[in-house]
Design a protein around this nucleic acid. Structure first.
Length: 576
DNA sequence: GCCGTTTTCGGCCCGACTGTTTTCAGTCG
């Protein structure tokens, strides 16, 4: 059993209850599902060590849901869910994934046409059976068919690293237009979530119709979902959706706040606003009929009596309470990195030379980079042995001498990405590791070990006195591979004890550590390094996604060692 | 079913759009 399975059961219960028009309970189940899914500890472990009481400490979990979790752990089933499922035996999550289909439509489709799955739905729609149902029409049928296409084709979410450059370019062009006074990407892009469902762009303009036409002229789109006086919604040729909305200047802050989300943050914020006698919506913050200042987001948060909350923190993870008490962290800024401590070159599986990588890094304002090519056991990429490392060190000395000659304040550090073997030993001899400035250690093999074995494997590697940084600590690849089984609480504890730095790998499909672990590492007082893991010069810019991840994990500048100057960073590494 | 600087009972976020109907339910963000 896993948290994910349990979360999925609870969100299905929520959907079934919505079918039956049960008031309020669906939200409760949905909320519990959300927190359980993003929980780091497994509920089973919590239950084993602390029982029902422990479960009730999970936000959104009370007596009732805690008992259902207990039932699931003991029997593998939740009888309430089984009961509901028997009544309407449909794949409710799959069906409601279709845009425009919610619980009530699922109910009607099942009642009249016995639609249980996406296949059934597609068949019914193609046969033209749906248009005949009460409250359904031809258009609904068409929309269902298109929705099915989308779900089948794209699975719905995109990596931030795929979407972000596109959005950045688009917003830049919008801003440059004399038609448009302001353009901002809101939604999950602004919050820098690791994956993006769709893109929301907000603009202010004196000529909405023309601005919308201009927007359409900038992109190639496959379909216009809808176009009105102040809003347009399209599917791009690349296959994702963009909504662009025109907002009045004077309530831009309220609108931006609203459309930035997250939904959970907004729900919480609005409930708080209401408790203080306000009403908050995308049209402003109101006290009675009177609109309170809301031209900027700062105005909105200020009027509610709290500190400004950075978009990356708006996930209902305690940020509102912290803002009220004015104890939010000063999260690390996007321009604060001085160095990059994981860079691959054409000595192994990178595309570019050491010199090319160094020059590009310097042009991005970095003051130092560590060259960390793979080591011996990664034979397929030409992993380096002791001898090859020695040769590379000579090459780096030469390049550093050249920078010095040109009076450039830039330094290439000698490093390696050393493999952690199955038993926790490293694949390079200690004498060689001792000569390197930066020793990264990482797991690249034997991913399928028990949690206990994987944890002690990594702990052993961290205890090597030469091991400086644990690279991509959980090994996950977003949308491709789950993290390996590892006890991150233990790893974080050991990182603190041994002075091992934990990496926040910024490569778009890694983003590893994840934000929940970053937050734990911050709380534990661990140091982290935000690295691009570049395998080509253009990848060096990926660090912004790592910084975003660090911000989402409430990390400050002091927490990231490569935000420190070299004179402080290097002695820190060597002090281990 | 959850939750508590107004509460252990009585609340629970808000508004627009769509498609189907003629006043609104369902869905979405």
């Amino acid at each position: 059993m896993s948290n994910k399975d349990l979360a999925s059961i609870f969100s299905k219960i929520a959907l079934y209850m919505e079918i039956d028009d049960v008031p309020f309970k669906p939200q409760a189940y949905e909320r519990a599902a959300g927190t359980i899914e993003s929980l780091q500890e497994s509920v089973e472990d919590i239950y084993k060590s602390e029982g029902i009481k422990g479960l009730e400490k999970i936000p959104g979990v009370g007596r009732g849901i805690a008992e259902k979790i207990e039932e699931y752990i003991k029997t593998g089933k939740v009888s309430e869910y089984e009961k509901l499922r028997k009544k309407i035996p449909v794949d409710i999550t799959e069906l409601t994934r279709i845009e425009g289909i919610g619980p009530k439509m699922v109910r009607d489709l099942y009642k009249h046409l016995k639609v249980k799955t996406l296949r059934d739905l597609e068949k019914a729609a193609r046969a033209g059976k749906i248009r005949g149902l009460p409250h359904f029409g031809e258009k609904t049928e068409q929309n269902i068919l298109q929705g099915i296409e989308f779900v089948k084709r794209s699975k719905g979410r995109w990596l931030l690293g795929t979407i972000y450059p596109f959005v950045e370019g688009l917003v830049g062009k919008l801003e440059d237009s004399p038609l448009i006074t302001r353009a901002v990407a809101a939604g999950s892009v602004r919050r820098m979530k690791e994956t993006i469902g769709d893109v929301d762009i907000l603009i202010t303009t004196k000529k909405p119709e023309k601005a919308i036409e201009y927007f359409l002229s900038l992109i190639s789109y496959e379909k216009i979902w809808g176009k009105g006086a102040t809003k347009v919604s399209v599917r791009t040729a690349e296959g994702f959706d963009i909504d662009m909305r025109v907002l009045p200047q004077e309530i831009f802050g309220a609108g931006l706040q609203y459309f930035t989300g997250s939904k959970e943050h907004n729900v919480r914020l609005r409930a708080y606003a209401q408790s203080r006698g306000f009403k908050l919506s995308e049209y402003g913050l109101f006290r009675g009929r009177k609109r309170v200042a809301c031209a900027t987001e700062e105005d909105v948060y200020k009027a509610l009596g709290m500190a400004y909350i950075e978009p990356e923190l708006r996930e209902d993870q305690g940020e509102i309470d912290a803002a009220l008490k004015d104890v939010l962290p000063r999260v690390i800024e996007y321009d604060s990195l001085r160095g990059d401590l994981q860079v691959q070159t054409n000595w192994t599986d990178g595309k570019d030379s050491i010199e090319t990588m160094a020059k590009k890094a310097r042009s991005l304002g970095r003051e130092y980079i560590a060259i960390t090519d793979h080591t011996r056991d990664l034979a397929m990429v030409g992993g380096m042995d002791e001898e090859k490392i020695a040769r590379q060190m000579v090459e780096i000395d030469k390049l550093n001498a050249k920078f010095k000659e040109q009076r450039e304040k830039f330094r290439i550090l000698k490093g390696a990405e050393v493999n952690v073997r199955k038993d926790g030993t490293l694949d390079i001899a200690d004498e060689t590791l001792a000569k390197l400035d930066v020793v990264g250690i990482s797991v690249h093999s034997n991913f399928k070990m028990t949690k206990k074995d994987m944890t002690s494997r990594i702990v052993r590697a961290m205890r090597n006195p030469h091991a400086d940084i644990l690279f991509h600590p959980t090994g996950r690849l977003i949308q491709k591979r789950s993290p390996y089984e590892v006890d991150m609480d233990e790893i974080i504890k050991e990182a603190k004890n041994t002075g091992t730095v934990l990496e926040i790998n910024a490569f778009p499909d890694r983003l590893d550590l994840q934000e929940t672990n970053i937050r734990k590492a911050v709380d534990a007082g661990c140091r982290m390094a935000i690295d691009s893991d570049a395998h080509a010069a253009e990848h060096l810019e990926y660090v912004k996604y790592g910084i975003a991840q660090a911000r989402r994990g409430w990390a400050e500048k002091k927490d990231a060692i490569n935000a420190w100057p070299l004179e402080k960073m290097l002695p820190f590494l060597k002090s281990k």
